[in-house]
Design a protein around this nucleic acid. Sequence first.
DNA 1: GCACCGTGTTTCACTAGATGCAACATGAGA
DNA 2: TCTCATGTTGCATCTAGTGAAACACGGTGC
Lengths: 257, 257
Amino acid sequence: MSNDSGSGGVQSVDRAISVLEILSRRGEAGVSEVAAEIDVHKSTAFRLLGALEARGLVEQAEDRGKYRLGFGIIRLAGGVSTQMDIIQRARPVCHRLAEEIGETVNIAVLRSTYAVNLDQVRGPSAVTAYNWVGQITPLHATSSGKVLLAHLDDQERARLLSEVTLDGLTARTIIDVDALEKQLAEARQAGFAFCLEELEDGLNTMAAPIRAYHGEVVAAVSASGPAYRFSLERIQEFAPLLIGGADEISRRLGYAG
Amino acid sequence: MSNDSGSGGVQSVDRAISVLEILSRRGEAGVSEVAAEIDVHKSTAFRLLGALEARGLVEQAEDRGKYRLGFGIIRLAGGVSTQMDIIQRARPVCHRLAEEIGETVNIAVLRSTYAVNLDQVRGPSAVTAYNWVGQITPLHATSSGKVLLAHLDDQERARLLSEVTLDGLTARTIIDVDALEKQLAEARQAGFAFCLEELEDGLNTMAAPIRAYHGEVVAAVSASGPAYRFSLERIQEFAPLLIGGADEISRRLGYAG
DNA sequence: GCACCGTGTTTCACTAGATGCAACATGAGA
DNA sequence: TCTCATGTTGCATCTAGTGAAACACGGTGC
């Protein structure tokens, strides 16, 4: 009953996390469902659920019934404090931006060599219901990633760019470092970055930097929409709005510049 | 090396959850810190962290350094979908209410025999920085709890009231079922409930019901402040604001009443 | 009303996986 | 350069985690 956890993982912990992911995806599930999904005996699944339940990470909807995620997860998530703080302060502005721009708005931060989406407000005209929260996206092919890269100090950016592979995700993805650096310089100059079908065909985005107390860029706020509607002209048109929104979020984080 | 996990739990899973809780509390911690805290060998702690890291629940701040919670936690929390949906839709209204009322605003739902706080917006005049998110509070001694109780059907409420112990938490806590039922009837009538130093000395709160599509009460929004400032007079004064805010949140959840 | 089925739950013998130990690698500080 | 503390790795040991078997329970069909 070996589970492919590769590099000396802890199988039980892996399994328990799989259980949590199943419940996150499905909303709720029973012992037998979970057992089937992670390919263990139902008594094993029962014990794993029991261990998670004891710590509040799952709860049973009613006696002898389905399980779902518990508030222990929310409590744990509350510990991701800086990000939650950014989300809490940014959220009202994101709502307004989503209304004004009419497209979906996201907040992303830099983690390792990726942009990670922390929060999302869907625009009224949003075509897709895709939820980016928690997803990681490549730095070179997203407007948030470009913003985050653009505002690193030169050394750190060079280090990062030497680590990432500039994958060509569409025909328009910028895969040349010099061309990317040039765009980043333009983004610093203009105060925002954009991506035209560089991550996915048909998807355009724009992003602006969110600064913290001392002016350091800690996140990016972006708007995204379908290319047929969210054209470069529209992006230029909305840039002041987005930059203004980013500035407001920055002020809420204590930035006085 | 037995860990007191009592009823046939899964020790490794227990330990892994303890690791997550440590990181949630402290923001970040190293291998040796974690090992000392959960009383295992540092190689064990290292493996537990590795297992969590492999699944994205923790990440290392930099190579060979401190660990912190990863976005896998946020991704998991995103699966608690109904609650997150309520939070997302309620948040802008809560911000406004916090500004207008000047006190801290919370959203709570009913779980088992408790009120569970899902979200919190601190008011500009907030005295305490206490974070209620994820905390459970007794139904009889909180305004949110009273709202949630008040809007259960009679049978369900009777069942719940037979299960809970009406602990006297302060000298003012209502511990008589009949007196509580009377207050709940008044809360249904008035459209809001309040608590005057019933949970903690010096703490007053008020709450109003949040309804979903069919009118069923799915959450409560509350405001809380120090008794010396948030007096019954102030509560009565702000009641229309809070009720209005609760109604707006309800409309955002699809309630047409 | 009874039998069957599927699910959840419990107990226990066995072994696979989790453990600590020892050693090594690394970086910071004296 | 040396020392110290931390992080990381490999491996032998042994115990915690496992599946099998059995039981409890509720729903469904006859």
